[in-house]
């Protein structure tokens, strides 16, 4: 630096610029309000003023038709998009419970140590490889159109919704198993050594030491997968199950208006947004805890 040579040090300017201070200081709130209005207002304006804006609004955001599709009218040949959501809900509820259990079983099989369980370990690995690799839509087709062909009594005579639900369970179990497994593997090896050196069995070590710690790291990614699962219940419509998306599609082709899709989208948002917010909250809390610990 020149000051070292000159002998007479010149104090450097340490102040933030006036603009930086305005943006960061008390003006910050006003600044975010202004930028919010500009960005959101800008997007809305593009939407509103586009050459085809009015047409677009007519086909997608038509309040009377949105309401009509929501309540449905079987006499006119279309189902209620609102009631269709109940199908998505039960598919999700059943699939979620089964996925959490099956994923756990798969993960335990892959993490097992005993030589006796070798075949299970191999099968579980193959299973997760295969079903994480096949698009869910294909699994739905294979189950939904394949099982009825088998002529296997009850197995072959289920409703499309049941087949769809089964396909979701099959696919998502593979993903969730990997989430569990990653959680267990994220626990430092020293924890395992410490527990086993106390003479605790492998099973007790899992139950008392590894899993309680793994659960905490696993919950946010697990919730992410469940949010996906919630949305993917819409895929069951390809088998002809009358759920929200399918009802909206039928409405659209009957009335030649897509407002039903908008309703379906809004209904999904009502379901998923609380869960995404909750997941973010957990992640933030975990991060705060880690920062406090470090």
């Amino acid at each position: 630096m020149s000051s070292a040579l000159d002998g007479e040090p010149v104090p450097p300017d340490l102040f933030a610029s006036r603009r930086q201070r305005l943006l960061a200081g008390r003006g910050g709130l006003a600044a975010s309000a202004v930028s919010g209005v500009v960005v959101i207002g800008g997007l809305a304006a593009v939407f509103w003023l586009a050459p085809g804006g009015a047409t677009m609004r007519y086909f997608f955001f038509n309040p009377p038709l949105m309401w009509q599709s929501f309540i449905g009218d079987p006499a006119k040949g279309f189902y209620s998009v609102g009631l269709g959501l109940l199908t998505n809900l039960w598919i999700f509820a059943v699939a979620e419970a089964l996925v959490l259990v099956c994923g756990m079983l798969l993960a335990s099989a892959r993490l097992s140590q005993s030589p006796v369980l070798f075949p299970f370990r191999l099968l579980a690995t193959a299973y997760t490889d295969v079903f994480r690799g096949i698009p869910i839509l294909l699994v739905i087709f294979i189950i939904g159109f394949g099982l009825p062909e088998l002529n296997l009594g009850t197995i072959s005579s289920q409703s499309p919704a049941v087949y769809g639900c089964a396909a979701l369970v099959i696919s998502y179990s593979a993903y969730v198993a990997e989430v569990y497994r990653a959680g267990v593997l994220s626990i430092p090896h020293g924890q395992l050594l410490a527990s086993r050196s106390l003479g605790l069995t492998h099973a007790t070590t899992m139950r008392r030491v590894i899993l309680p710690q793994a659960v905490r790291t696993v919950i946010p990614p697990l919730l992410n997968d469940l949010i996906s699962l919630q949305k993917d219940t819409a895929l069951v419509s390809v088998l002809g199950a009358i759920e929200t998306t399918r009802a909206a599609q039928i409405y659209g082709s009957t009335v030649f208006n897509f407002s039903g899709y908008t309703v379906a989208a809004l209904l999904f948002l009502i379901l998923t947004v609380p869960m995404t917010r909750f997941t973010d909250h957990l992640i933030a809390r975990d991060r705060a805890r880690r920062l406090a610990g470090a």
Partner: peptide
């Protein structure tokens, strides 16, 4: 009993 360099408390 075994005690480790990095404590390994739970």
């Amino acid at each position: 009993g075994m005690v480790f360099q990095s404590f390994n408390l739970f």
